[in-house]
Computed example of a mutant assay.
Amino acid sequence: MPTFTTHDGTEIYYKDWGNKNGPVITFSHGWPLNSDNWDNQMFYFASQGYRAIAHDRRGHGRSSQPWEGNNMDTYADDLHELFEHLDLKDTTMVGHSTGGGEVARFVGRHGTARVKKAVLIGAVPPIMVQTESNPDGIPISVFDGFREAMLKDRSQFFLEVPTGPFFGFNRPGAQTSQGQIYSWWQQGMIASFKGTYDCVKQFSETDFTEDLKKMDIPVLLLHGDDDQVVPIGASAKKAINLLPQGTLKVYPGGPHALPNICTEEVNKDIAEFIGA
């Protein structure tokens, strides 16, 4: 099982599939998931001659569960250490949800010397929580409710999220996949309680405005206009105005879980963007 150890002793698990000499594409997962949530994309791109890499963020999946360091700066620094460990260059970075924030913060802290393009899917930037300067954001009470639900019965909460808004299975006429629900629950339940609890603050309250401004590379935003987790009006439609070279594609009726629900279209859009 491939792992590497960060400077603070945290062991990070990662997958490294496909052609080791091929063009590099990395995937950063959402909360409270792990690299398994990218398996469809990983398989697709590895099968097309790419080198596809995805890691389990600290506190998630098969990586260590440290009590400290569950914050966006450290997430980005861990990923940068993985880039250095594997000596990745000319990389296309892909991030979903919280992972989109991780990609933005990576560039904000470490620049684009190793990165040529980025794709942010249903991503949290620029900032999710409602503030005086961000009146269109989500009230902090919603995220407080996440934390309260975790403390009361994390297992039940981690069933309710995928059964409802994450995949859009709560919409009339939606074709529900019990397998997707169980997979989400399983990924969430093997994650660190402390790590996932701390991460709620990170994906909701981190301001990525300045990070987006520093993304001086082509960036593709993919977002569903029926995203019930990261509403498009408070995220992608604002982020596009901050990116120096941004392109926004809206998926009509698309839910938050675009990589899972709109798999073929997402893969095609990423592939076309990389080749452009």
Score class of each variant (00 low, 15 high):
His110Gln: 11
Arg105Ser: 04
Thr92Leu: 12
Glu84Phe: 00
Gln180Asp: 15
Tyr75Cys: 00
Lys152His: 12
Glu148Pro: 02
Leu82Asp: 08
Gln175Leu: 13
Ile121Gly: 03
Phe83Met: 14
Thr98Met: 15
Gly95Met: 05
Val119Pro: 01
Ala76Cys: 06
Gly145Thr: 08
Arg147Cys: 07
Ile190Trp: 05
Phe158Ala: 02
Asn134Tyr: 05
Ile140Phe: 01
Glu160Cys: 03
Gly101Ser: 09
Ala123Phe: 05
Glu84Ser: 14
Leu159Ser: 09
Gly173Asn: 11
Asp77Tyr: 07
Arg171Glu: 13
Met150Thr: 01
Pro172Leu: 11
Phe143Leu: 04
Leu159Ile: 09
Met93Pro: 00
Ser97Leu: 07
Glu148Asn: 14
Glu132Lys: 13
His85Ile: 03
Lys116Ile: 06
Leu79Gln: 13
Met93Arg: 04
Lys116Val: 06
Lys116Tyr: 10
Val107Cys: 08
Asp153Gly: 08
Phe143Ser: 03
Tyr182Met: 11
Gly99Trp: 02
Ser192Tyr: 04
Leu79Met: 15
Asp144Ile: 08
Thr112Asp: 06
Ser133Cys: 03
Pro162Asp: 03
Glu132His: 10
Ser192Ala: 05
Ser183Cys: 06
Asp87Phe: 09
Gly100Val: 10
His96Cys: 03
His96Leu: 12
Gly164Cys: 11
Gly145Gln: 09
Gly137Met: 01
Ile181Met: 06
Gly145Leu: 01
Asp77Cys: 10
Ile121Met: 09
Pro125Phe: 01
Arg109Phe: 02
Lys152Asn: 12
Val94Ala: 06
Gly188Tyr: 01
Val107Leu: 12
Asp153Met: 08
Gly108Val: 09
Ile181His: 02
Phe143Ala: 02
Pro172Asp: 10
Asp87Glu: 12
Ala113Asp: 15
Pro126Phe: 04
Val107Thr: 11
Tyr75Phe: 15
Gln180Phe: 14
Asp153Arg: 06
Leu86Gly: 10
Trp184Ile: 02
Asn134Phe: 02
Asp90Phe: 08
Thr98Asp: 04
Pro165Phe: 04
Ile127Val: 15
Gln180Met: 14
Leu86Asn: 06
Phe169His: 08
Trp184Thr: 07
Thr92Gly: 02
Tyr75Ala: 04
Val161Gly: 01
Asn170Tyr: 07
Ile190Glu: 13
Val107Pro: 00
Thr176Phe: 08
Ile121Thr: 06
Arg147Trp: 04
Pro139Met: 01
Trp184Glu: 04
Leu88Pro: 04
Pro135Ala: 05
Val124Gly: 00
Arg154Ala: 05
Arg147Asn: 11
Val119Ile: 07
His85Tyr: 13
Ile140Gly: 00
Ala191Ser: 15
Met93Leu: 11
Trp184Phe: 15
Gln187Tyr: 07
Met93His: 09
Asp153Cys: 06
Gly108Ile: 09
Thr91Cys: 14
Leu79Glu: 13
Arg171His: 09
Ser141Cys: 05
Pro126Met: 05
Gly145Tyr: 05
Ser192His: 03
Val119Thr: 01
Arg147Phe: 00
Glu102Arg: 07
Pro135Gln: 06
Ala149Ile: 00
Ser183Leu: 14
Ser97Met: 09
Val142Ile: 14
Thr112Leu: 03
Lys89Ser: 15
Ile181Glu: 00
Val129Glu: 01
Glu160His: 06
Glu102Met: 14
Thr112Cys: 11
